[in-house]
């Protein structure tokens, strides 16, 4: 497995989740544990570009795969565009769900780009727009308890260059 471009060894205990591998074995604590039940999205990471929940992923299942976490998003030591947009639009408060929201937003952007529909897409065979309603539905797997939803959606729209 490769994490943020570096090869890593899989854990000996097959019970270790991808989330715990990151947090406890690799010291990459930017990925958060909110529920360990697949119910909050705080542990979202990108595997070969697709967003998944690392809490429900057994690390051993991901051998040979490339994992990108919040720590891998910086570009030349600078915040990436989505990260910067979250700061600019106050897309967080306590910050605990934030890395998951950001990774999820990046995964979502590629899904929209390739035309994947969502629950609120009216025409399944038409083109997909990055409207606020679409982004809200697509980001609903990432809970935020501080209520930063408006800022998160605004940040994503800004970073993805979408209109209102």
């Amino acid at each position: 497995m490769v994490v943020n471009g570096r090869p890593v060894r899989l854990p000996e205990d097959p019970r270790v989740s991808l989330l715990d591998l990151l947090r406890e074995h690799l010291g990459l604590t930017g990925t958060k544990k909110g529920c360990a039940q697949g119910a909050c999205g705080a542990c979202t990471v990108l595997v070969d570009g697709a967003r998944i929940l690392s809490c429900l992923a057994l690390a051993v299942q991901y051998s040979g795969r490339s994992v990108l976490t919040i720590e891998g998003l910086a570009e030349d030591g600078q915040m990436g565009p989505v990260q910067r947009a979250f700061v600019d639009h106050d897309g967080f408060q306590c910050g605990y769900c934030t890395p998951g929201q950001i990774c999820s937003a990046i995964g979502m952007a590629t899904e929209i780009e390739r035309g994947a529909p969502s629950h609120v897409t009216a025409d399944l065979t038409g083109t997909v727009e990055a409207s606020a309603a679409e982004i809200r539905e697509r980001m609903s797997g990432n809970l935020c308890r501080c209520g930063a939803h408006n800022g998160i959606i605004a940040a994503i729209q800004a970073a993805c260059g979408a209109g209102p």
């Binding site: 604590t29 544990k33 720590e71 967080f92 910050g95 934030t98």
Partner: peptide, 21 residues
Amino acid sequence: LARRDGPAKVTGEARYASEVR
């Protein structure tokens, strides 16, 4: 003003209680 701890929170650098080893 933007949050002064914003960059730490969006990069995963902010260290919470369960992240101290």
